[in-house]
């Protein structure tokens, strides 16, 4: 379970995250929506321990910036960045060593096959197209079999086959008890499989709704998003 309490992050005078509090239970696919500059990436980087912040963020009771917590968290960034002088295979091997993984080789082969990278394993990081880089990024994020995975705009640059495969992976991870937090602009891409949505605007969470509660209200996610972000309302 991921628990954030009073998460606040300032950049000089700018309040990028203003007193955010939320919980993402196990086996949940949570989506973070918001316009540009809402503070989504800042929140994600704070969870990953990349930024100093006020408040606390814990996973299974451990502060997310600790080594122990990082074993449980995976991260797929928005912009894939690879080492230019390592091949696809070597990237995965590098991560396996960084995470001190044992018994990972079969899963590695499965990921490469599912995301159609098995015939690209000898290609260098800078020889891959943007889409392939994104796929490798996803493989790297998933290889340690984390309990909590952050995806920042994961579907950008992916072909239809990869998008479908990724959605299947989301469902498998959820079924296996893992939690996901997906940050995206494209509401359509997450329709049909999300469990919880956090809508952010101007550094604050203006809505924290579950799929069941939204369905009961009769409103679609898109309607809710535009109602809140364009009118400046807050969902109760």
């Amino acid at each position: 379970m991921l628990q954030a309490e009073h998460l606040t992050k300032r950049f000089g005078k700018v309040l990028a995250n203003n007193d955010l509090s939320f919980t993402i239970p196990e086996g949940t696919i949570a989506v973070m929506l918001g316009p540009n500059g809402a503070g989504k990436s800042t929140a994600m980087k704070s969870i990953m321990g990349l930024l100093r912040h006020e408040g606390s963020i814990r996973i299974d009771g451990m502060d997310t910036s600790t080594v122990g917590a990082k074993r449980l968290i995976g991260y797929v960034p928005e912009m894939p960045s690879l080492y230019p002088n390592l091949t696809v295979d070597e990237h995965l091997e590098f991560i396996a060593r960084a995470y001190k993984l044992t018994d990972y080789k079969d899963y590695k082969e499965e990921l490469l096959r599912r995301l159609q990278l098995d015939d690209k394993r000898k290609k260098f990081g800078d020889e891959l197209s943007k889409g392939m880089q994104q796929k490798l990024s996803i493989c790297i994020g998933l290889l340690p079999r984390p309990k909590f995975i952050l995806f920042d705009e994961p579907m950008i640059g992916l072909d239809p086959h990869a998008i479908r495969e990724l959605k299947n992976i989301f469902q498998e991870l959820k079924a296996g008890g893992s939690s996901l937090l997906i940050s995206t602009h494209i509401i359509d891409s997450v329709e049909g499989f999300w469990d919880q949505t956090l809508i952010m605007q101007s550094g604050r969470i203006v809505a924290n709704v579950t799929h069941e509660s939204l369905k009961a209200s009769g409103e679609t996610l898109e309607d809710l998003f535009f109602r809140l972000t364009e009118a400046g309302e807050e969902a109760t």
């Binding site: 321990g49 990349l50 991260y75 960034p77 894939p80 990081g125 790297i140």
Partner: peptide, 15 residues
């Protein structure tokens, strides 16, 4: 550092 270090090593369970 480069962004690959940020994405892979900063987020890895390493001190």
């Amino acid at each position: 550092f480069n962004m690959a270090d940020v994405n892979f090593l900063f987020t890895a369970p390493l001190h």
